[in-house]
């Protein structure tokens, strides 16, 4: 089963690569919103690939179903969290703009 083992290793390595890219994006991207893109998308696929690799090595159907469930819930919560963080950042930026305007117009 060398073939399956190496396929699994390849998937897990690729998944780790996407996690790395997501983290680099998180550090390099210019603002909160762009950073959220890196987190939701790259990490989602990274986890999918790691789960795929683990599923190839899994001993039972139950394990595979559990891996799918893990991926599903993580991706769902990542999308929801990104939405909430973005909403909060928008409200924050709007508030910051308002205070900046009042400071400038003060005599």
């Amino acid at each position: 089963m060398i073939l399956i083992d190496s396929l699994a290793a390849l998937a897990i390595l690729a998944g780790a690569g996407f996690f790395m890219a997501g983290t680099i994006g998180l550090l390099r991207f210019p603002d909160t919103f762009c950073r959220l893109h890196a987190l939701t998308k790259a990490d989602g696929l990274g986890l999918a690939l790691i789960c795929l690799g683990a599923a190839l090595l899994a001993g039972s159907a139950g394990e595979i179903v559990r891996l799918v469930l893990i991926w599903l819930f993580v991706v769902l919560s990542a999308a929801t969290c990104a939405h909430l963080v973005a909403r909060h950042a928008r409200a924050d930026a709007a508030a910051a703009r308002n205070t900046a305007v009042t400071k400038e117009t003060r005599p």
Partner: peptide, 10 residues
């Protein structure tokens, strides 16, 4: 989507 964002990040 993930490849696109990874490419931009790197």
């Amino acid at each position: 989507g993930a490849s696109d964002v990874a490419r931009r990040a790197l």
